[in-house]
Simulated assay, not measured.
Amino acid sequence: MKQYQTDLYIEDLYFFDRKLESPIKESEWQNWLEKWLSLLELDLDDQKTYEISLILTDDQEIQSLNQQYRDKDQPTDVLSFAALETDFPDTDFLDSITLGDIIISVETAQKQALSQGHSLRVELAWLTSHGFLHLLGWDHPDDDFLKEMLTLQEFLLNSIELQAPSIELFFDS
């Protein structure tokens, strides 16, 4: 299994502004993303560094972004903005490659964690794994693709010894 180096840029607007301690340390985020990149067995150059921005914010900010970029005037839990929308271009001359941005509303994550009966830590990891997969090209245009993506998220959370939410929560009974 290849090992990948990531540069993670965290902009913690939520916990920092409120003088609260985040349930996940920056070193944990870094370790998780590097582990996930390795586990996914992508055809990436292990000599490169992969850059990801993680922004933790509130419902007001994510609603503004959701309106601006998706024409949806409502908060959402996670938004992803992939830097590479198509196959990886020729990057031989680059030392690092930007994968994109993951933006999470901690307020929405807290509500979802409470309603689903798990910790904020689990919900933040879950949402980050979802956004991370989007940065790498996964999508869920229908229920079959969504189930495949959620199963992969479950695998990623299990790899860092967190119990993923039941994927059945995402489908009507």
Rank of each mutant, 00 (worst) to 15 (best):
E148L: 12
K35R: 15
Q67D: 06
F88I: 15
Q68D: 10
A164Y: 05
E168T: 13
Q3W: 01
L124R: 05
D95F: 13
G100M: 06
Q110F: 03
T151M: 02
S105V: 03
Q5S: 14
A113I: 07
T57N: 05
S22N: 13
M1C: 05
H130V: 08
L40V: 10
L20N: 02
S105P: 10
E61G: 00
P89C: 06
I52T: 05
W36C: 06
L99D: 06
S27W: 08
T49Q: 11
E107A: 08
L65N: 02
T86Y: 11
S173M: 01
D87L: 11
E85S: 12
F145I: 01
L84H: 10
L133Y: 06
Q3Y: 09
I103P: 08
D92P: 00
P89L: 09
L39V: 01
A113C: 08
P165W: 01
Q30C: 01
W126Q: 14
I24W: 06
Y14G: 03
L84I: 15
L127K: 06
K35E: 12
R121A: 12
E85N: 12
L135V: 05
S64F: 12
T91S: 09
T76C: 14
L84V: 15
S27Y: 08
Q153G: 01
Q5P: 00
W138E: 13
I55V: 14
D73V: 01
A109D: 11
Y69M: 01
D58Y: 02
H118I: 04
L39N: 14
A164F: 03
I167F: 12
M149C: 06
T6V: 15
F145N: 11
A83V: 00
N66L: 03
R121E: 15
T108I: 13
W36L: 04
V106N: 09
Y4C: 05
Q30F: 08
S119Y: 07
A82H: 04
T76R: 02
D172W: 11
L39K: 14
L8R: 07
H140W: 08
K25G: 07
A83W: 07
N66M: 03
S38W: 02
T128E: 01
A164C: 12
D144V: 13
D45Y: 08
L20R: 12
Q67W: 09
I24M: 05
V106P: 09
D17I: 00
I102S: 04
A113K: 02
H130A: 07
I52A: 10
D142N: 15
K2C: 04
S53K: 14
Q110R: 13
P165R: 03
I24G: 04
I55H: 04
S27E: 15
L33C: 08
E168I: 04
N31G: 13
E168N: 09
V78P: 00
K19G: 01
G117R: 07
Q112V: 13
Q63C: 10
S129L: 04
L156N: 06
Q74K: 15
F170V: 00
P89N: 08
V106W: 07
D46E: 14
D12T: 02
L13A: 07
G131K: 03
F81C: 05
I55R: 13
